[in-house]
Write a protein that binds this DNA or RNA. Sequence first.
DNA 1: TAGGCCATCTGGTCCT
DNA 2: AGGACCAGATGGCCTA
Length: 227
Amino acid sequence: MNVGEENLLKSISNDTLLDLTQRYGQSTFGFGAGHGAGSPGRYPLTPAADFLSAQTAKSTESGGEHTSDEDDGYDPLDPRKRSSAFDDDKHSGSLAKKPKEQRSLRLSINARERRRMHDLNDALDGLRAVIPYAHSPSVRKLSKIATLLLAKNYILMQAQALEEMRRLVAYLNQGQAITSPIPTALAPFGQAAVYPFTGSALATCAEKCTSYSGTSSSIFKHCSDKP
DNA sequence: TAGGCCATCTGGTCCT
DNA sequence: AGGACCAGATGGCCTA
């Protein structure tokens, strides 16, 4: 594990995530529907006809080389994708020297790989949509690594809550004292603790993020809504 | 401007 | 043989 990952893991420890989940509550679930297309970053909806024509010209001038991007739903409007997928200068040097057959094989492999990565990103978007974090236009999308680590900790936290629930049920059924103090056992199930932001979809990112001032989490550096 | 994050290309490996 | 998966390299965009 590298240093960065270690820091990230530290920054979103189980306790932090437990806290985070309690504070954000379930009302943030499903709120992620708006992110993705509308989120700042990867998939701008702005038409870029000028750019397209420019790129078409460019790809023609770089030896008429063209990736099979259109074939697989590749989105040339994405600044990042277009910049390298259309700009074959980076790699076409070696590719151009290869036989035509070999070149087309390479291009189809590239297209497949691109599609695979897009699928992976779609899955990550799906994951972002169901883990509790601030989904709002002012909040930058979680990075890939943050999404995975947050999801992992969220799963652990859910398992912990389930275990406490089981203990609570056993306690209620048997009328026996449970091992952990009741307030602790009950805390995860108290409405106030779980939903501190009534209608948390309306809570500002800053409101949520400042609730975690105890952590030096890089996870929350996405908040551009700081007070 | 440096660093973080990302998309893409590429060659290698493994699997069907 | 062809496809899936992976990791390294490269370069663009964005933010502190």
